[in-house]
Structure formats: C-alpha cells, structure tokens
Computed example of a mutant assay.
Amino acid sequence: MFFTGLIIAFGTFLIIGVFHPIVIKTEYYFGTGPWWVFLVLGIGAIIASLCIAQVILSSLLGVIGASCLWSIGELFEQKKRVDQGWFPKNKNRQ
C-alpha cells in the first residue's frame, strides 16, 4: 500500500487547521500590519516546494505557502469580523 496521498491529505488538514487560529491571534495582537510576513513566508514556502524533489515534503510546503498567501485575505476579513463584533477587539492595541 502507498500512503503518500493519505499523508498529504492529513498534513493539509492539520496545516489549514493551524492557520485558522494563527490568523485570529495575529489580528488580535497586531492588527492587519503583519500581512507582509504572510506574503514573504508564503512565497518562500512555494519556492522551497519547487526546489525539493521529495513528494510529501514538497506538497506540504506548497500547502503551507498557499495557506500563508490565503491568510493575507483572511487577516483583512478577520478585521471586518472584529468590527462587526463577531470576535473580541484587543483594547490594549492602538
């Protein structure tokens, strides 16, 4: 049996699950300012995935890169959700 697809699917599920609270916490503590960090990490992970021959690692790096890039949009959407009152606003952040 080959478990490559199952490992990639499970890794993708975990990566997406981890990025959800990362976006929420980033917006809570820092606002939308660090969007460029997600951009740099996303591009770096995608470039790294293109340079690695091992299928599982390359695939998971591609998923991480795509998740970082997707998180940029989600960061600004999270700000809207906070403004609508769906999530708490950090009173200590200017």
Rank of each mutant, 00 (worst) to 15 (best):
I43P: 03
I64Q: 04
S49Q: 13
G33S: 12
V18S: 08
L69C: 04
Y28N: 04
L41E: 10
T26V: 13
W35T: 05
V63C: 09
K80L: 15
N90E: 02
S71I: 10
F30W: 11
I24H: 06
A48M: 12
A66G: 14
V23I: 14
L61Q: 06
N90K: 09
G5Y: 06
F10P: 00
G42C: 07
E77H: 09
G11D: 03
I8Q: 03
G65P: 02
Q54K: 14
V63W: 01
I7D: 00
G11V: 10
L61F: 06
K79V: 02
L6V: 13
E77W: 06
S67V: 04
G33P: 00
G44S: 14
T26A: 03
F87V: 05
L14A: 11
S49A: 15
N90F: 03
A9P: 00
I72W: 04
S59I: 07
V18A: 14
Q54E: 15
I8E: 00
W36A: 14
G33L: 11
E77S: 08
A66N: 03
K80G: 03
V23K: 07
E74I: 03
G42E: 08
Q84I: 02
E77V: 10
I16Q: 05
K91M: 07
Y28I: 09
F10D: 00
I8F: 01
S67D: 04
Y29T: 03
L6K: 08
E27F: 02
K91W: 00
K91D: 03
K80E: 12
I64E: 01
F38K: 13
G65E: 03
C68E: 13
G85S: 06
Q94W: 06
S59V: 09
A45L: 11
K89G: 00
I46M: 13
Q78E: 11
G33I: 07
V37R: 09
L75Q: 05
L41I: 14
A48P: 03
F2S: 15
K89E: 11
S67K: 07
W86D: 09
K80S: 13
K80H: 06
G33V: 11
F76S: 09
Q94Y: 06
C68F: 09
Y28P: 02
K79I: 04
T12S: 12
K79S: 11
G33A: 14
A66T: 13
L60P: 00
G5N: 12
F13D: 00
I24M: 09
W35S: 12
Y28K: 08
I7G: 01
F87C: 01
S67M: 10
V63G: 01
L61V: 06
L50N: 12
P88G: 04
L60E: 07
L61M: 13
Q54A: 15
G62P: 08
G85F: 10
K89F: 03
G65K: 08
A53I: 09
C51R: 14
F3S: 14
G42P: 05
G42T: 11
T26W: 01
V55L: 14
A66Y: 08
K89D: 02
G17N: 10
P34D: 05
Y29W: 12
E27P: 00
F2Q: 15
F30Q: 13
G42Q: 10
I46V: 13
S67W: 03
C68H: 11
Y29L: 11
H20C: 03
F38D: 01
P88T: 05
G85Y: 10
A53S: 15
Q94I: 15
K79H: 10
I43Q: 09
G85M: 07
G44D: 02
S71L: 07
I8Y: 01
Q78H: 12
L57T: 15
I22A: 06
